[in-house]
Design a protein around this nucleic acid. Structure first.
Lengths: 187, 187
DNA sequence: CCGGCCATGTAATGTGTTACATGATTTA
DNA sequence: TAAATCATGTAACACATTACATGGCCGG
């Protein structure tokens, strides 16, 4: 029902411009490589592929498996991609659940705030490791897109690093602000 | 129509717990103070306030103006806030339009990529200045919430700083990768 | 031969913004 | 007195996820 929006088209045309693949693989590729700043679900991808095919922006050829298709970008599709990339950026307003909870953390309690910081640390360490792996892989492959891929990865890495430094600092600050709260027994 | 979700309730109850205010002021407060990580529209706020009032979580008293109400959190509301703050975080998957465009920046062209970096720099400088102002203000007011407010502001500042450093680096990298493209006259 | 992955697709549902409608109050 | 701001609220729309449904293929 929901006609996918132009932004989904950018992700789909862009990913297919790097390498032709099936809708299923497309989802995986977007998750793996663009996962730290983008996401697409099957509910968006399949309708988008069909629509883009009807518009002549992608071409489908039978895949190895009977039920699968391999999609590739047509010349028109490349033109459309350039056009879409120039279109104004309209991001949804931010909604960061972690920050919201920490902001009102006084009502949550010190222990739970520290637990949130622990989770954040773990998530960012994992993310950082994944980004470094991807970085190494991209550097090895020597694609024409490499400089562009690498700067986006670099921002991800810097953001993770800044967040990890912040976690350490935030922990100390919260412990300092309410020294006895976490160890005080309930009377 | 759309029943506001629990996350809106956190923002509304949390903001009102700091200081009672009208729905209109609530929007402004969320924009000013939580704006770098959260957002609520009137279409969410007003239905939420009415629902929370029916549930006895907030109380409304007439404001200075005839058509306005000042909402404050009740004891039940405070309990509910603590509960909501402990609920699992379910963020929407990320969708960063800038990163998406830079990732496929080869199809956009060097000049437009550099323009995107310029916009990013300007936006982050402005954001950083605003965060520093807010930081100073919070430190001056000496609220019990201050430590929690300050750590969220600090993450914002660190993220801006990291992004600004990244912009410089990204510019150099892109210029180095396609040295002649930006100055080459069209034949 | 069965569990898990590959593969496609649709319908229902949730979530949230934008646009619209209305009117009081303040300020220039 | 006109424009801007304060103030509340609803309806329509846009966007995306989740759940569901279906079936082929492969390895153990």
């Amino acid at each position: 029902m929901a006609a996918p929006t132009p932004t989904t088209d950018i992700a789909v045309l862009g990913a297919l411009s790097v390498e032709p693949m099936s809708g299923y693989e497309l989802r995986g590729a977007i998750q793996d490589v663009l996962g730290h700043f983008w996401s697409e679900s099957f509910g968006q991808i399949y309708p988008a592929l069909n629509r883009l095919r009807e518009q002549g922006l992608v071409a489908a050829r039978p895949g190895e498996r009977a039920s699968s298709s391999v999609y590739s970008v047509t010349a028109q599709g490349r033109a459309r991609l350039s056009e879409l990339l120039s279109s104004p950026i309209r991001d949804r307003p931010p909604r960061n659940g972690l920050m919201l909870r920490l902001f009102f953390g006084r009502h949550l309690g010190l222990d739970q705030c520290l637990a949130l910081l622990d989770e954040t640390e773990a998530a960012n360490r994992a993310q950082l490791a994944h980004l470094r792996d991807t970085q190494t892989e991209v550097e090895r492959e020597n694609l024409p897109d490499a400089p562009y891929f690498l700067i986006t990865i670099d921002l991800g890495i810097r953001t993770c690093e800044a967040t990890l430094e912040w976690v350490d600092d935030a922990r100390e600050r919260l412990r300092g602000a309410e020294p006895a709260a976490s160890t005080r027994p309930r009377r």
